[in-house]
Simulated scan of single mutants.
Amino acid sequence: MFKKKEVLLLILGIIFVSSTLRAPITSVGPVIDQIGSRLNLSSTLLGSLTTIPLLMFALISPSVAGVSAKFGMSKTLFCSTIVLLIGLLIRVIPNPLFLFLGTVLIGIGIAFGNVIFPSFIKWRFPSQMGVMTGIYTLMMTMFGGVGSGFSVPLSHVGHGGYQFALGFWVILCIFALIVWLPQLKTNPKIVVEKSDRKIYKSKLAVCVALMMGFQSMLFFCMATWIPSILMSYGFSKQTAGYFMMLSIFSQLPMNFIVPVIASKLKDQRILAYAYTLLFIIGFSLLFTQTFVLTIIAMIILGLASGSAFSLCMLTFSLRAKTTQDAIELSGFSQGLGYLVAATGPVLFGWLKDYTGHFESCIFAFLIVTVIFFVFSYISCKNRYIFD
C-alpha cells in the first residue's frame, strides 16, 4: 500500500512540475502588445521575450548533468522550480529591467526541468518510459495551450492587465513545489558520475541534438509567426489566437499516444515519416487562406507537433543505455538544439521583412520540415550514442 501511495505521489509530482514548463512562456505572446504599451518597449525588445528563454535553455542545459550529480535529480528539480517561481514574481514588476531579469530566471528554471525529466523517467519508470513520457509531454503541452488561450481573458480580470495574466502561473508553481516535497524524502539521491567520453564526438548525439533543434525551431516559429500570418490573411487577432489554441490542444492525444507506440518499436523511423507528412500537408494548406481549410491545417499541424515533440523527448532515453547517458544526451541535445531553435523566429522575421510577404515564411516552414526529417530519420534508428 505504501509503495502504491509513493508511486501515486510521484506521478502527481511529475504532473504538476511538468505543467509549469511551458505556460510561463506561451502566456507571453497573446499579451505582448499590452506589455509593449505599458513599458514602452520596441518590437525588437518584445521579440527577445521569446528568444531569451531559448538562449537560457541553450546555455544552462549542458551544465544540468553536473548539477544533478552534486545534488540529485529530485532536489535539483525542486530548486529549479523555486527559481522559476522567483522569476514569475519578478517578471510582473512593471519595469523593463525586472521584466527581462524575470524572463532570464524563468528560462533557467525551465531548462533544468526540460533536461532532467526524460532521464528521471528512464531511472524511475524503466519499463513504463512510453506511458510516463506521454504524461509528462501531455501536461507540458496542455498547460502551454491553456497559457496561450487564457492569457488575454486573464488580463481582463479586474485591473490586473498583463501582470495578472503572467503572474497567475505563480499559483501552479506553488502547487508543484508542495506536491514535489515528498520526493525529497522518499527518492534516493541519484548521482550521475563523470565520464571521460565526449558526447559531442558521437555523431548520433549530434543528430539527436539537431533533431531537437529543428523540432523546437518549428514549434517556436509557429508560436511566433503563425498568428501574424493568419492576421495578414484577414483573420482577427482573436480568431488567430483561437486557431493557435486549437493547434496546441490538437497535440494532446499525440503527446500521449506517440511515446507509448514508439517505446514498443525497435525502430521509430516510421513515426518520422508520419509526422513529416503531416507537417507538409498542414503548412501547404495555409496557402489556401480559407477558413475551413485553415482549421484543418491547424489541427494537422497540432498532430504533427505533438508527435514530433514527444518523440524527441523519448529519444533521449531510447538512444541511451543508462540514466547517466540519458541525462548527458538530454543536456547536450537541448543545449545545442535550443541554440539552433533561437535563430528561427529572428530569421523568419528577417525573411518576412526582406520579401514583404508571409508566404515566404510558409515556404521556410516546409524547408525546415525537410531538414528536421533528415535528422529525425538518422536519430530514430535503433542504436545507442556510445556504441
Score class of each variant (00 low, 15 high):
residue 326 A to T: 13
residue 12 L to Y: 00
residue 264 K to W: 02
residue 173 C to F: 07
residue 192 V to M: 13
residue 227 P to N: 12
residue 137 T to Y: 01
residue 196 D to E: 14
residue 355 T to W: 03
residue 359 E to G: 07
residue 77 L to Q: 07
residue 372 F to R: 00
residue 320 A to N: 08
residue 292 V to P: 02
residue 147 G to D: 11
residue 180 W to F: 15
residue 372 F to Q: 14
residue 192 V to D: 10
residue 128 Q to H: 14
residue 71 F to R: 12
residue 284 S to H: 00
residue 219 F to K: 03
residue 302 G to N: 02
residue 334 Q to A: 05
residue 155 S to Y: 13
residue 229 I to W: 09
residue 304 A to Y: 08
residue 144 G to W: 11
residue 225 W to H: 10
residue 106 I to T: 12
residue 225 W to M: 05
residue 278 L to G: 00
residue 184 L to Y: 11
residue 213 G to N: 07
residue 52 I to F: 07
residue 46 L to I: 06
residue 147 G to Y: 05
residue 201 K to H: 11
residue 177 L to D: 10
residue 340 V to E: 12
residue 234 G to Y: 07
residue 265 L to V: 02
residue 78 F to Y: 11
residue 291 F to R: 10
residue 120 F to I: 09
residue 206 V to D: 00
residue 104 V to P: 08
residue 327 I to W: 13
residue 281 I to K: 02
residue 156 H to A: 07
residue 319 R to M: 02
residue 347 L to N: 08
residue 319 R to D: 03
residue 128 Q to N: 15
residue 95 N to R: 04
residue 249 F to Y: 04
residue 300 I to K: 05
residue 240 A to M: 09
residue 96 P to G: 04
residue 18 S to C: 10
residue 379 S to E: 12
residue 108 I to Q: 08
residue 371 I to D: 07
residue 56 M to H: 09
residue 57 F to N: 08
residue 351 L to F: 12
residue 83 V to D: 06
residue 236 S to G: 15
residue 365 F to G: 06
residue 64 V to R: 02
residue 164 F to V: 11
residue 308 A to T: 02
residue 338 Y to V: 01
residue 189 K to E: 07
residue 24 P to A: 04
residue 359 E to H: 14
residue 34 Q to K: 12
residue 205 A to H: 08
residue 324 Q to T: 15
residue 289 Q to G: 00
residue 207 C to N: 15
residue 137 T to M: 12
residue 212 M to H: 06
residue 40 N to S: 13
residue 6 E to I: 06
residue 348 F to Y: 13
residue 377 Y to F: 15
residue 223 A to D: 11
residue 15 I to P: 09
residue 84 L to Q: 08
residue 217 M to G: 13
residue 41 L to I: 03
residue 176 A to K: 12
residue 136 Y to I: 00
residue 17 V to T: 13
residue 97 L to M: 09
residue 377 Y to M: 15
residue 13 G to Q: 06
residue 25 I to E: 05
residue 47 G to A: 02
residue 21 L to W: 00
residue 118 P to L: 06
residue 323 T to N: 06
residue 111 A to W: 10
residue 44 T to I: 13
residue 367 I to T: 11
residue 341 A to K: 04
residue 128 Q to C: 05
residue 228 S to R: 14
residue 281 I to Y: 06
residue 36 G to H: 00
residue 167 G to V: 09
residue 301 L to V: 00
residue 122 K to S: 05
residue 123 W to D: 15
residue 218 L to S: 02
residue 296 I to D: 02
residue 313 M to F: 15
residue 134 G to A: 12
residue 183 Q to V: 03
residue 155 S to P: 12
residue 141 T to K: 01
residue 283 F to N: 04
residue 245 M to S: 15
residue 107 G to R: 04
residue 41 L to S: 04
residue 136 Y to E: 11
residue 152 V to A: 06
residue 276 T to C: 08
residue 321 K to Q: 12
residue 299 I to K: 04
residue 146 V to D: 10
residue 44 T to C: 03
residue 327 I to C: 04
residue 222 M to P: 01
residue 94 P to W: 00
residue 111 A to P: 06
residue 314 L to M: 06
residue 205 A to P: 02
residue 142 M to A: 15
residue 58 A to I: 00
residue 118 P to Y: 11
residue 147 G to N: 01
residue 75 K to W: 13
residue 2 F to M: 11
residue 164 F to H: 06
residue 119 S to C: 10
residue 22 R to F: 00
residue 371 I to R: 08
residue 160 G to S: 05
residue 134 G to W: 12
